[in-house]
């Protein structure tokens, strides 16, 4: 039986360059071996380490499962480490991917069109030339409810000022608006979720991903 075909990974920003070359090799014989970094690995690295998203958010953007994204990401880091350690060049190419582009609509001629070239911003309709265009999709990624819903509270150790914890911002980097001291996470034993609750949440998430 043939294996299940690989799910196509969505690439929203293709790389600007096609690779990297090392310089100043100690014992170079003029030729350097190459490491082939796939587009999907580049994209995973970009989302996780440049855009600083977590694996779940990145996996939704790339339209794969969270474990798959983690595997792609691990492979990307391994390849880049190999290139750095062994002084190999990096060539970005290949992979099971498709490119994503934004869609716009024009109000005056009621047409829809996309923007395959990311570098250029679209200002007028390519068909009738009017400026009454609008973006079809909501491009800004909103975190899943299960990720953003957070009942933690930040507390100031000096003056006991409390404020709700902001998702994705470490409590230590929050500064108390009253006394200017760095804040801490408030330890609440009753906040711990039971295993059943966690299980419910994860099944909810799957349901949403499938139908929502």
């Amino acid at each position: 039986m043939s294996p299940r075909p690989t799910r196509l990974r969505k690439i929203s920003n293709p790389p600007l360059i096609s690779g990297f070359k090392p310089y100043g090799a100690k014992n170079s014989n003029g030729k350097t071996e190459a490491v082939f970094l796939h587009f999907e690995e580049y994209e995973a690295l970009r989302l996780c380490d440049y855009e600083l998203l977590n694996h779940l958010q990145a996996s939704i953007i790339m339209d794969v499962s969270r474990p798959t994204l983690t595997r792609i990401y691990a492979k990307a880091r391994q390849k880049i480490a190999e290139a750095l350690v062994q002084g190999k060049q990096i060539i970005i190419e290949g992979g099971k991917i498709y490119f994503d582009s934004e869609w716009f609509s024009c109000k005056s001629c009621r047409c829809y069109f996309n923007n395959p070239d990311k570098q250029e911003e679209i200002k007028k309709c390519p068909l009738c030339g009017s400026g009454t265009i609008s973006n079809c999709q909501e491009l800004f990624y909103e975190p899943e409810e299960s990720v953003s819903r957070c009942r933690d509270i930040c507390i100031c150790p000096k003056c006991d000022y409390e404020q709700p914890h902001k998702f994705g911002v470490p409590c230590k980097s929050e500064i108390c608006p009253v006394c200017g001291h760095n804040m801490l996470k408030k330890i609440m034993p009753q906040n711990k979720k039971t295993t059943k609750e966690k299980k419910d949440e994860s099944s909810n998430y799957k349901y949403r991903k499938q139908f929502g």
Partner: peptide, 16 residues
Amino acid sequence: KSLLDSLKIQMIVLKE
């Protein structure tokens, strides 16, 4: 769609 995106050809959908 994916083919045209990689060839950088713009699609214009006119439902008229």
